[in-house]
C-alpha cells in the first residue's frame, strides 16, 4: 500500500469531484417531475447529460447510469495510488457477471434463453473475457478465486440443480476475496469497511430469510464470515422477535439501522427501510475520513457516495416509469450529500 501522504492529490481531486454529485435539490426536482420524461430532463442538466444523449429510447436510462458510474471508476483508477481500492469496489460486479453467466448457461441447458443483457461493464474483468472463458471452458485466467470456483459450481449444478446454493457460495467467495484484498492494503479503515459490508449483507439475508420463513437450521449457511458481528451472534437473533434485534446489537454501530425494526407494520416496507439504513451504515464506517486530506479510505467513501447517487437516480427513474408516488420514492432515497 502506498503511504497515506501520497493520497493528497487523490483526496483533493475526489473532493472536487464530490461537487458534481447530485444534491438533494436535484433529487427533489426529479421527484417533482410529472413523468419519466420530466425526470430525464432534470437529469440532463447534471453530469449524466453526456450519457443521456447516447440513449436510444427513454427506457434505456440504465445504460446512462452505468456509463456514468463506469466513467467515474475509470477516472478514479487513473489517479488513485492503489488501484486495488477501486478493484475492491468493482469486485461485486465481477461476481454479478459470473452469476448472470452461470444462470444463463443453466437456463440454456433447460431450453431457456441467455440473459447477457444483464451483464455489466462495471467489473474489473470485461464481460467479453468472462463469456469467452466460460464458453471455452478455460478458467485459468479468471481472477478472485473464480478459477477453481467456477468449474466446481458447474459440477455442483449438474448434481443438485440448486441455484440458491450456487449463489450463496459465490457470495461467500466474494466476501472472502474482498477481505483478502482489503488485508493486503494494510489499512484498518479499509478492512472495517469490507467487514461492515459483510454485516450489512448478513442482516439483509437474515431479514429476507425470515420473510421467506426459512428454518433456523438452514440460515447459518446464508451468513458470511468476517463481519464485525460474528455469525454466531447473528444466528442468536433468529430466535428473537425483530423488535429486540436493535437492543441485542446495541453494542454495535448497526443498532441505528436496526432501530427501523421497532415499528413493524408492513414487512416488505420494513426490509426496504432497513436496506436503506444498512447502506447508510456502510457509508458511516468511512465517513470520518472526509475530515482528512490524505486518507486512502476517502476513495471508498467517495465511490460509495457515487454508487448511492446512481442507486437514487435508478430508483427515481424506475419509479417515474412505473408511476410510483413521489412520497414513496422519497422514502427510498439514500444519503448522498458529502
Amino acid at each position: 500500500m502506498a503511504q497515506a501522504e501520497s493520497y493528497g492529490y487523490t483526496v483533493a481531486r475526489l473532493r472536487a469531484m464530490e461537487n458534481r454529485l447530485l444534491d438533494s435539490g436535484a433529487f427533489q426536482r426529479m421527484l417533482d417531475a410529472e413523468d419519466l420524461q420530466g425526470a430525464l430532463k432534470v437529469l440532463n442538466e447534471t453530469c449524466y447529460s453526456s450519457w443521456l444523449v447516447e440513449m436510444k429510447n427513454e427506457g434505456a436510462f440504465d445504460g446512462a447510469i452505468e456509463a456514468e458510474l463506469n466513467y467515474v471508476y475509470r477516472e478514479t483508477e487513473q489517479f488513485v495510488p492503489d488501484k486495488a481500492l477501486v478493484a475492491l469496489c468493482k469486485m461485486p460486479y465481477d461476481f454479478h457477471n459470473i452469476k448472470v453467466l452461470l444462470k444463463s448457461s443453466f437456463l440454456q441447458k433447460s431450453g431457456g434463453s441467455r440473459r447477457w443483457d444483464l451483464l455489466t461493464r462495471l467489473g474489473n474483468v470485461t464481460p467479453e473475457f468472462l463469456i469467452e472463458s466460460l464458453e471455452s471452458e478455460d478458467y485459468r485466467l479468471l481472477p478472485f478465486g473464480l478459477r477453481s470456483a467456477v468449474p466446481q459450481l458447474l459440477a455442483q449444478w449438474e448434481q443438485f440443480h440448486d441455484i440458491l446454493e450456487i449463489e450463496r457460495q459465490l457470495d461467500d467467495l466474494l466476501f472472502s476475496e474482498m477481505l483478502k484484498l482489503a488485508a493486503k492494503l494494510e489499512r484498518k479503515g479499509i478492512v472495517e469497511w469490507v467487514r461492515g459490508r459483510i454485516d450489512a449483507e448478513n442482516v439483509r439475508n437474515l431479514l429476507r430469510l425470515r420473510r421467506m420463513q426459512v428454518e433456523n437450521s438452514r440460515i447459518a449457511g446464508f451468513l458470511h464470515d468476517g463481519g464485525i458481528i460474528s455469525v454466531e451472534r447473528l444466528l442468536s437473533l433468529t430466535g428473537e422477535p425483530l423488535e429486540s434485534w436493535g437492543r441485542l446489537l446495541a453494542y454495535t454501530d448497526l443498532t441505528g439501522a436496526l432501530s427501523q425494526l421497532q415499528e413493524i407494520s408492513d414487512f416488505d416496507r420494513l426490509i426496504v427501510d432497513v436496506e436503506k439504513a444498512l447502506d447508510d451504515y456502510v457509508l458511516r464506517i468511512v465517513e470520518q475520513t472526509r475530515f482528512s486530506s490524505t486518507s486512502p479510505e476517502y476513495v471508498l467513501y467517495y465511490l460509495w457516495l457515487k454508487e448511492m447517487e446512481a442507486k437514487n437516480v435508478r430508483i427515481i427513474l424506475v419509479g417515474k416509469a412505473n408511476g410510483a408516488s413521489r412520497d414513496v420514492l422519497r422514502g427510498l432515497l439514500r444519503h448522498v450529500s458529502g
Binding site: G8, Y9, T10, V11, A12, R13, R15, A16, M17
Partner: peptide, 10 residues
C-alpha cells in the same frame, strides 16, 4: 498536491 487535485476538476 491538494491544489493540483482540486484544479484538475476546477
Amino acid at each position: 498536491e491538494a491544489a493540483a487535485g482540486v484544479m484538475t476538476e476546477d
